[in-house]
Amino acid sequence: MSRNGIFSNWSGWLSFGWLLLLLIGALLADAVTLPSGPDLLRASAAPLTPGHLLGTDSQGQDVLSGILHGARTTLLISLPTAISAATLGTALGVVAGYWGNTRLRLPRAWVLAGGGALLLYTLLCAPERSPVAGWWPLVLASGGIVSGKILARRGWGRTAVVLPADTVVSASMVFLAAVPRLLLVLVVAATIEPSISSLILLLTLTFWVPTARLVRAEVQRIRQLPYFEAATALGVPAPQIILRHVLPGCWPLVRTSLPLSLAVLISLETTLSFLGVGLPPEMPSWGRVLAAGRVSPTCWWLIIFPTMALLFTALSLRRLLPDLGQSRVTSKAK
């Protein structure tokens, strides 16, 4: 590890240890014998009560078990979301940055044939009892391919149509930025059925923007560099250039933004569960422990312990960055 690496001093070791502890706690949440159901005899018990190390809430639920199971919920949501959002953001950022508004060209024949097939598919459907039922998508796909091939024989069909990739990606960024993120997630999460997979999908679709913005700018910078020009001049095909020359240059950026977006996602998930939106009501979460703390404000242990868990996790994730992050200000879930 280099001098700037995470293991260079004690705070790096500490944050690594905390994240490892969190992971183990989340994995072994069921194996540890903890009181799972409500313990009605010891409701609102203070910490260090026998059997309840960190106390219980007003319903008699154990706080330690809530924090361990909540860690599992948090990781189960934030890890896949962060990874898929980073992937989606990188893909869209590369598309927007590499092809820009002028370089994504398709032969006119294929644009016409594909667009026609899609249009027919959206406008018309085959009723269940008609002879073409079930075959309709296949008929359209093969028809599109055949007509594309026929049209491509003419010189007129081979002239290129420019697709404005950059404009499309930038416009969708603007639309996603038009609503504050917390409100957007809240509005949509309140309408869908609460479940883990739908929440992951929703968060992914709203969280790709920062990564895409970074990657797009980086690809535009890389495109000006001599080695990129050399690869283009050599006639290396576009997928090869992207895979071998563009993506390795973007990787440090994505790696830096991943822990930050994890921290933001964890705090957003906690906020959503605190508001009682997005996850099924029986899912344990840090936000729910904190929500129990709001109802009974004299039970300080309901607020202090989940807050410490949140704070340690966020600070450890920040410590994973190459630099302490003084030069990069995070975008925060609001």
Partner: peptide
Amino acid sequence: LFALDTLPLFVVALLLLLLLANPD
């Protein structure tokens, strides 16, 4: 400031409530 920035808003609000508006 980094710590305040990473904590969700509602946690900060709860902490303030716990520290400054609590009979205990």
